[in-house]
Amino acid sequence: MPIIEVKNLSKTYEYYKKQPGLLASVKGLFRREKLYVEAVKEINFNIEEGELVGFLGPNGAGKTTTLKMLSGILYPSGGEARVLGHIPWKRQKEYQKQFALVMGQKNQLWWDLPAMESFILNKEIYEVPDKEFKYNLAELTELLDVKDILDIQVRKLSLGQRMKCELIAALLHKPKVLFLDEPTIGLDVVAQKNTRDFIKKYNKEKKTTIILTSHYMKDISQLCQRVIIIDLGRIIYDGRLDDLIKKYAEVDDILVDEVEVDDVIREIFGNGGGVK
């Protein structure tokens, strides 16, 4: 039975348009043209236990929206989803204790305190027993090689070090499902590689089911066998990465690693494939 089941999942956002200029803003005070954007349109996919799936697409394709629905942060406009047998947006504690979400552009650590203080708070929130906490923490700090920085204010850490601490904070309760939203964004090449190696090892050892989004092809090609490509809210590809790369015939594998995911998608599916 799949760990993650998504059926016809949709999300529509409301927004309004404004012409440039002050006058338009004044007009906007009284009258606004309401517009709707379908960020996610009836998507379907299943993910089995232990899979590490790449979730790709250009900016605004609907990746983060999907992850947020699967995390229970957003209510969908339509469709169904089950993760570990739970409906995410019901926000049941049994579910919330079994998954984690890491966002490369947002942090959950207390900014002016050492990361350790955030870990301790998470330990209590996730009700991790003392012994398990110590064990998990030792294991994660060892794996990520961050023993020396746990007592330093988070804001003083480099982006790479901070991401490592974010990962620890998210994994201390041993989630069965992990959503990684651009965990390598903004990191330098070395830090990217370290993060990647860690994700690979962690997935292999713990059999954690992982959905990973990234703009770096290298992340995807080295970590995922299966990719789901979403664009303008629709899934345009769901299958093996190898097959996708074969379609990207003009360029060899080494070069594939160096390009951005968006370029690969654009090259393969073209504008006809729905890519902007």
Partner: peptide, 17 residues
């Protein structure tokens, strides 16, 4: 800023947290 997201996913009553 969307920074409340990471609080909302925690296994505790969201209002309390």
């Amino acid at each position: 800023m969307g920074t409340m997201d990471l609080i909302l996913i925690k296994p505790m009553d969201a209002q309390y947290l």
